[in-house]
Design a protein around this nucleic acid. Structure first.
Lengths: 356, 356
DNA sequence: TAGTCTATCGGGAGCGTTTCCGGTAACGTT
DNA sequence: AACGTTACCGGAAACGCTCCCGATAGACTA
């Protein structure tokens, strides 16, 4: 294999100093147009490629950032990552993704490994023990910012959607269809949730659910809250209880899936109990992830502005990398309702407010 | 922020030479146990972390490899990447993922960017212009190996499933259910396919389809082949033709989806035309990606041994990195049929071979 | 004509490692 | 007592780059 061609090689071939080559290639001002051209030409013909390592060692910056994601693929964060990739590329930064799934040792191990990866900062997206990761980053002086919040306190700049308002939007939509017995299906994310407290996204969504009920004067019924651990295997106790209730004839006429990923299981279960969607039960999800259009019927859901969130994340991170101060608070983004067939109006139901 | 602590700092604090520190930390033989302990302790208390950059610059190896994937998430390659991550970690290598989706410039640009990323080699997974990417890697002396094949020739070590045998398995299963009018739904992958030639995975799957038909003595009917560009939007002409046929009463009783990602659309379309799965139409997919268990009914499909493939990929790549010779050929892995409800036997159909 | 200024360039240090090589001290051997 | 061995350690070079600083030559000013 051909030995790597270095600055010195180019310098020799172009008959100029190595410093000049560096400047010519780096578009610095104090080099004549003529030499710049010549150096350029020689470098190209020699197939010169700068060593990112050497450059990083010298300058102390890698021009690369990392995102830590829960898994390689499959999740609401995909579009966020995609957007972040693009945003980073636009300012000449390279972005790399680090899935934590399957890694043993969890957050700590991830950051441990990250210490060996050339990166100027990290974006932590919806991983368990988000705070732990961020703090570990802090310890090794790595700027970090978080997206979504799986930790109750805000000790790092945190980007999230307006979860409470979004949930309210969802449930209001169901109510506007004339639904009144609305179940809340919640993903269990491995940390204790606190229905009323501030913090976890799922808490906010629960609050939004209550907000909508309250405004509509519908009594809150705790038995309609169902926690669901595994969206694919439906192992959670509460979920089985719902199934039991359904088979004993308890009726719900709507369901707010606080995460799209559970929609498949929900649909299957409802169907198994002879309930039709959207005729008998209307469903609204949250996240607008790709599963939403895969299921049948396609899912009405709450969409987060993933692109904006991803872009803003890199923007914030770059600021932090450049030493600017970034407020430690939650940066919230507005959500919108995406209507699909899971909330088609089956028949003309009399609505509370009398509109069509 | 605290300045980074270097070898020199540790050396000063431990009152030994920097070379000794390096050796002590690196578990080299010629350093006394006593000093090793002391250096270790000092390093820990100072919070020393070796600079991966400096080390890489000196040693010339990064102990990191890259995977290039079509997209950030959502696809059959997810488990491959996951397995590769693990395999790499086990031998002390770090793996990073590079999605090409959204990148402008395609393959060339990717590798261009990769030149600035510290990596010892790359695994290219199912991206368009796979050959182009591999060749670009070759040019910059980056060891590369490919997984799956979206190029017709094998100019790089290529890992793939036994696509032909897998497809045969799928279709034989359908035939064993008594089905005889079996549609083949194919993903369009952006390159011209050649039904009979060797190369693209989809060609192999088509061949397997024919193999099964031939063995069962079922005549091949070209009009049952449907090409489908976008699994989510179903825009392809042939697909609309199928829909048209279905509505004019043309009957199929089974469908082999040559990629799971199309199953959602297929199911929706069939349902829209009043056909029930699995009662009226049996469906088998290919890939066993996560979509397979999300759809309703859950999809019988052909599973590739993703974990093995991912592990083998890093094994092969590491060998290449270490300068060993790696045969340039296709490394094929056996597939298996995963039975789910989309091929439940609806009623007792008379089977050709008379078995139950 | 002498001095100053600008444009252009080269030398060389230094980023944090690893590793070669040479040096010292302690020990064992004749 | 003189030598060779062994065990341990430190100095320093090198990896490829950037950038500070000083040098040179020509142009311009007084």
């Amino acid at each position: 294999m051909p030995r790597k061609v270095t600055l010195a090689d180019v310098s020799r071939a172009a008959e100029v100093g190595v410093a000049t080559v560096s400047r010519a290639l780096g578009d610095h001002p104090d080099v004549s147009e003529a030499t710049r051209q010549r150096v350029r030409a020689v470098a190209r013909s020699l197939g010169y490629r700068p060593s990112a390592t050497a450059r990083a060692l010298r300058t102390g910056e890698y021009r690369a950032i990392s995102v830590i994601v829960p898994d390689a693929g499959w999740g609401w964060w995909e579009p966020v990552v995609r957007a972040a990739f693009k945003a980073a590329a636009e300012v000449g930064y390279y972005l790399m993704a680090h899935p934590v799934a399957g890694t043993k040792g969890g957050a700590a191990a991830i950051v441990e490994a990250l210490a060996n990866v050339p990166t100027d900062g990290v974006i932590v997206i919806g991983v368990p023990d988000q705070d732990g990761v961020c703090e570990a980053c802090d310890r090794i002086a790595l700027p970090a910012i978080a997206i979504d919040d799986t930790s109750r306190t805000v000790r790092f700049p945190t980007i999230s959607a307006q979860n409470r308002e979004g949930a309210r939007l969802a449930v209001e939509h169901l109510i506007s269809l004339g639904r009144r017995s609305i179940a809340l299906l919640r993903p269990n994310i491995g940390v204790e949730t606190d229905n009323w407290g501030d913090g976890l996204f799922i808490d906010h969504r629960t609050l939004g659910y209550r907000d909508a009920l309250d405004s509509a004067g519908i009594a809150f019924d705790e038995s309609l809250i169902i926690d669901c651990t595994d969206p694919f295997n439906e192992t959670r106790k509460h979920w089985r209880e719902l199934e039991a209730e359904l088979s004993t004839g308890v009726r719900i006429d709507a369901m707010f899936c606080a995460a799209d990923s559970m929609a498949g299981a929900a649909l299957r279960t409802l169907r198994a109990h002879g309930l039709k969607v959207p005729e008998d039960v209307s469903i609204v999800g949250f996240d607008d992830e790709r599963a939403a259009i895969l299921v049948d019927p396609q899912l009405t859901t709450i969409r987060q502005p993933y692109e904006e969130m991803g872009c803003y994340a890199v923007e914030l991170l770059l600021r932090k990398i450049q030493g600017e101060h970034v407020d430690i608070r939650r940066y919230e983004f507005v959500t919108e309702l995406v209507r699909r067939s899971s909330t088609d109006e089956p028949e003309r139901l009399a609505k509370p407010d009398g509109t069509t």
